[in-house]
Design a protein around this nucleic acid. Structure first.
Length: 466
RNA sequence: GGCGACGUAGCCAAGUGGUAAGGCAAGGGUCUGCAAAACCCCCAUCAUGGGUUCAAAUCCCAUCGUCGCCUCCA
């Protein structure tokens, strides 16, 4: 079975072949750090975390690079507003973002380069482009010369003529072509600046990513990811820069996630319609966010609403049901039934892989996991022993962890309240024995209001946090 | 205006030529003192109109609609 990936560059699914056998070089555009990250950023981080986890599960060694853009107009403006140092501000948001990712159970990148630490590479690349006439300097700025690049527009499917017709480009007489973009910006007074052949200044956004790719992954990479709002101009320009220098195709596969939307509108800092990751995680487990992503197709828009949120919560509950242990004192399955459960588990794994191999079809993969959930729960109802359930639950754990789900049930033991809840349930089972339903229900309802749900069964009562 | 993506049941969503996976919600049932959970049953002809084909949700054309990009943005 071969993994196939939808490549934005060719607008089609292609068989996945790496530059170097068994190894994947992967780069994902990280955030510009000037504000709290919102759940749209979380979506992107989760999509590529799942891609990375699945590649590793499939046996690849993945070098995963995610950058931080830590010098930029918005950072500088915000720092000026607050009267703080822009570098300190960026550092604070980098720390916050890293904490967000950890809370979301996103695996750490192999490297998290920062623009400000890559100046040598950035300046080397710009110098080379100027030498080769791919770029030119004007008044301390340096611009990329788009009309020297016959391929310009190949990722976004645009032509230079078409873009000019758009007429939303600001006119700058100093540029040779309206679409020429900045590689280097001359510093204004008071701004952070680095020395260069063209005077003090700072890099344009696009060259940063080209340079960090070049430094950490080399001339060519396997997968380049990011939100589909970056296709143009950011990724288009990365391609133009890097290929101008190397003369080789830059990234083999361009992957773009769809936007997270709120009421049919993209969630973004500039529109101000955002829910931050911090706010979200204060209300919901990280698995809920991840399940919203898993349930949908990564290339399509993900609608964030009460409906999709509560659906994800319900999905989480259902997944957790598969982790319940065998009922105490159960007789065990017949050997045929036990073997059949194992078979179902193997089949679920195959279906899971088949779905993921088809451009990371996580919704299909989740369906495969639900086949297994159903089989496990059926077996348990059919008085399976824990030994019967073990192999199937092992597969369940394996597959859910490939998706990065935590399905944490340990909070039961971890809570300080646990002994008190146990005590209440102990009392309740006594009044239940006396058929004092009024008191029994009062305890159950009271606990419910405190977020503890009680379940009665023949073997006794169990509880869990809502 | 240009470029791109998309439109499958109340909602999310799989399926890219052979007569519609899965989940949530809703409804019916088993279990339960009653619940909850679990289990069983039930729930769509695929935006619209043409065309190609023995056969289309799946290919082609048109129309309508939604979103993204064209300016910083995951």
């Amino acid at each position: 079975m071969t993994l196939r990936i939808y490549n934005t560059l060719t607008r089609s699914k292609e068989d996945f072949e790496t530059l170097e056998p068994g190894k994947v070089r992967m780069y994902v555009c990280g955030p510009t750090v000037y504000a709290d990250a919102h759940i749209g950023h979380a979506m992107s981080a989760l999509v590529f975390d799942i891609v990375r986890r699945y590649l590793e599960y499939s046996g690849y060694v993945v070098k995963y690079v995610m950058n931080y853009t830590d010098v930029d107009d918005k950072i500088i403006n915000k720092a000026n507003q607050l009267g703080v140092d822009p570098f300190a501000l960026a550092q604070q948001y980098i720390d916050d973002y890293a904490a967000n990712l950890e809370a979301l159970n996103v695996l750490p990148a192999s490297v998290n380069p920062r623009a400000t630490e890559e100046m040598d590479y950035i300046l080397t690349m710009i110098t080379k482009m100027v030498e080769d006439d791919h770029a030119y300097a004007v008044d301390g700025d340096v611009y990329f010369r788009v009309d020297r690049d016959a391929d310009y527009g190949k990722l976004s499917g645009r032509s230079l003529e078409g873009m000019e017709a758009g007429a939303r480009i600001q006119i700058d007489d100093r540029k040779e072509h309206p679409m020429d973009f900045a590689l280097w910006k001359a510093a204004k007074p008071g701004e952070p600046a680095w020395e260069s052949l063209w005077g003090p200044g700072r890099p344009g956004w696009h060259i940063e990513c080209s340079a960090m790719n070049f430094h950490h992954l080399g001339e060519q990479i396997d997968i380049h990811g990011g939100g589909n709002d970056l296709i143009f101009p950011h990724h288009e320009n990365e391609i133009a820069q890097t290929e101008a220098i190397t003369g080789k195709p830059f990234a083999r596969y361009w992957m773009h996630n769809g936007m997270l939307t709120l009421k049919d509108e993209k969630m973004s800092k500039s529109l101000g319609n955002m829910v931050t990751i911090k706010e979200f995680l204060a209300q919901h487990p990280a698995d809920v966010m991840r399940l919203m992503v898993i349930q949908s197709a990564y290339r399509n828009p993900l609608v964030y609403s009460e409906d999709t949120l509560s659906a994800a919560q319900q999905v989480l509950k259902r997944l957790l049901s598969a982790k319940n242990p065998a009922m105490s004192g159960s007789a065990g399955l017949s050997s045929q039934a036990s073997a059949s459960l194992k078979e179902t588990a193997e089949k679920a794994r195959e279906n899971f892989k088949a779905a993921m191999d088809e451009d990371f079809n996580t919704a299909g993969a989740l369906a495969a996991i639900f086949e297994l959930v159903k089989a496990i729960n059926q077996a348990r109802d059919d008085s399976a022993s824990q030994a019967d359930l073990d192999p199937a639950q092992a597969v369940f754990n394996e597959l859910t962890s490939v998706l990065g789900l935590q399905l944490d049930t340990s909070q039961r033991e971890a809570s300080d309240a646990a002994p008190f809840i146990e005590l209440l349930l102990d009392l309740r089972s006594q009044v239940r024995a006396e058929k004092n339903w009024v008191l029994s229900d009062r305890i159950r309802d009271g606990l419910k209001e405190l977020g503890v749900s009680v379940k009665d069964s023949k073997e006794g009562s169990t509880w869990s946090w809502e």
